[in-house]
């Protein structure tokens, strides 16, 4: 299974039999409220029953993911960041050691190849921060391998199209 999460519409990407595509900016997804309900009250399930509920199981089940986000201060912008925060039901509260660091235990999250496209007017410093952020995500989101690509507002459609064609094969 493959998953595309993005924060703008790409009309050349469609949900097909093994591809799930979501433009998060067109969806109603609330902020995580930090209640720990998904760890300690209803384990594996978020207490907020909005559209995020159908996405985080797909994050866990997909072996290939393509994430496309506007970048702000070296971080994912609001849409993707909101979704990642709401995806913590796919982890347990309990801690394990991974690469000599403490991280949360994952539930049924399969290892994945990730392609992350960050776009916007991004300085070199922000690019460095974003690359490091993705390397942190790799540990917490079970990336087996990942590739970070940058684009400008002007060429993001073109770059996403090129990468999507390679990625869907």
């Amino acid at each position: 299974m493959k998953l595309v999460l993005c924060d703008k519409e790409f009309d050349f990407i469609k949900s097909e039999k093994d591809i799930n595509y979501f433009n998060l900016s067109a969806m109603k997804i609330s902020n995580c409220v930090g209640c720990f309900g998904c760890w300690t009250k209803t384990p594996g399930k978020c207490v907020i029953r909005d559209e995020a509920v159908k996405i985080y199981p797909l994050i866990a089940q997909s072996e290939k993911v393509l994430y496309i986000s506007h970048i702000v201060y070296g971080s994912y912008d609001v849409a993707l960041k909101t979704m990642f925060e709401r995806a913590i039901p796919i982890q347990q509260a309990f801690i394990r050691i991974l690469d000599n660091e403490t991280h949360h235990v994952q539930r049924n999250v399969i290892e994945k190849d990730a392609t992350i496209i960050g776009y916007g007017n991004i300085s070199d410093e922000e690019k460095e921060i974003f690359k490091e952020l993705v390397s942190r995500n790799a540990k917490n989101m079970n990336f087996k391998k990942y590739n970070v690509i940058f684009a400008t507002i002007e060429n993001v459609d073109e770059i996403v199209k090129k990468e999507f064609e390679k990625w869907e094969k």
């Binding site: 594996g44 199981p57 039901p89 539930r107």
Partner: peptide, 24 residues
């Protein structure tokens, strides 16, 4: 710490350790 947290909500360590996401 987390086991006690769950216990206060009536959830056991085993339940907190479920590998299921949205019951699947």
């Amino acid at each position: 710490y987390w086991t006690r947290y769950g216990k206060r909500n009536g959830i056991s360590k085993k339940e907190m350790s479920t590998m299921l996401i949205e019951d699947k």
